[in-house]
């Protein structure tokens, strides 16, 4: 799908802040509100804008328990379907947050969220390793998130400018 400059701008703005009010968005791209709304709707319909989500720093939430692991998975691709079939078998599990096909030393990078290390370990040993095509897995637990999807969690850059300057 070939996008217009205005559509590309909408995506760039919403990708940074999905809650940009429609009237503000319209002014930013210099189009009437109705036209802007129609473009956003079109992008949603075409599944170019897939979803609007919220980035949460769960460490700030008392009592929250949870671990995230990145798992390197080596698999045997199948004739005709390549990696897609085994990828699908993996990404259908709800605890799997993302699956990427990778170049390099392993094939699939799988991100899993669980309530505890034990829960993740259980998933890997019972669900993932037992799949026919899976040759091996290497599990890395995430210890701390510094930056996610372009956003730094602890923002240190406050406005240090003087109040009025020529």
């Amino acid at each position: 799908m070939k996008l217009s400059d205005k559509e590309l701008e909408i995506i760039e703005i919403l990708e940074k802040d999905a809650r940009t009010p429609i009237d503000v968005l319209a002014k930013m791209i210099d189009l009437p509100v109705e036209e802007t709304e129609a473009l956003v709707h079109k992008l949603e319909e075409a599944n170019v804008i897939v979803q609007y989500t919220t980035l949460v720093d769960w460490r700030k939430v008392d009592g929250h328990e949870g671990v995230t692991a990145m798992i390197d998975v080596k698999v045997t691709p199948k004739r005709g379907v390549g990696f897609d079939e085994v990828a699908e078998r993996i990404y259908r599990f709800p605890e799997v947050k993302s699956v990427y096909l990778m170049s390099g030393a392993y094939d699939l990078s799988v991100v899993i969220e669980g309530r505890s290390m034990a829960e993740v370990a259980q998933f890997v040993s019972e669900k993932l390793s037992t799949l026919d095509s899976v040759i091996s897995t290497t599990t890395h637990f995430i210890l701390k998130k510094y930056k996610h999807d372009g956003t730094i969690f602890d923002k240190g850059d406050q406005d240090r400018r003087i109040v009025v300057a020529p």
């Binding site: 406005d159 400018r161 003087i162 109040v163 009025v164 300057a165």
Partner: peptide, 25 residues
């Protein structure tokens, strides 16, 4: 500089939104 007086005044207040800055954010 005529800006000086404004700078002093603006700096003495809390909660000011400054559109008076001549530099990038």
């Amino acid at each position: 500089s005529g800006i000086r007086r404004f700078f002093d005044l603006a700096s003495s207040l809390d909660g000011v939104i400054s559109l008076g800055v001549g530099e990038p954010d």
